[in-house]
């Protein structure tokens, strides 16, 4: 079942993960149901993408999906930096870890939700839809 989109407006989602397969999959799934996706394989690269949108002024991101554990800058550190650029950008953290510590840090950094891998896609899509329409 494909989640239907309520709005016709093209929404842009930034996907950050150091695993290129995950980037490709999420991009394919979200693209297939009508989102515009931008992928970044690291925190610094994600910040570059955000800066690009700020320079052009338009086509700002409506949501970001961030992997928790990445080499160098991790997901929480990235979110904290994103907050300084785009304070209201909704974020969803995806993590393979079962620990609570990462969750607390992620929620403290303004994450809407922390989702565990392997991700329940339907739940993820529902959450994305809710976050973007509100």
């Amino acid at each position: 079942m494909i989640v239907s989109r309520m709005s016709d407006k093209l929404h842009r989602i930034l996907i950050v993960d150091d695993d290129v397969d995950i980037l490709a999959n999420l991009s394919d799934i979200l693209g297939d149901i009508g989102y515009e996706t931008v992928t970044a394989s690291s925190g610094p690269k994600a910040l570059e993408k955000i800066d690009e949108t700020n320079v052009s002024g338009d086509c700002r991101f409506d949501l970001c999906l961030v992997d928790f554990k990445m080499p160098g800058m991790d997901g929480v550190e990235l979110l904290e930096l994103i907050r300084s650029k785009q304070p209201k950008l909704p974020a969803i953290m995806i993590t393979a870890y079962a620990g609570d510590d990462g969750d607390r840090r992620a929620l403290a950094a303004g994450t809407l939700e922390v989702m565990k891998k392997p991700v329940d896609i339907k739940a993820l899509l529902g959450m994305i839809d809710e976050a973007i329409s509100s």
Partner: peptide, 28 residues
């Protein structure tokens, strides 16, 4: 166990998302 969880969940996540796409994509 933390290490195993992380290392197994990442490929599982990729497998699961690909499977979701294959099952749900419109005219892939």
């Amino acid at each position: 166990s933390g290490g195993i969880a992380h290392e197994i969940r990442n490929p599982l996540n990729a497998v699961k998302t690909s499977a979701y796409f294959l099952l749900n994509a419109k005219n892939p």
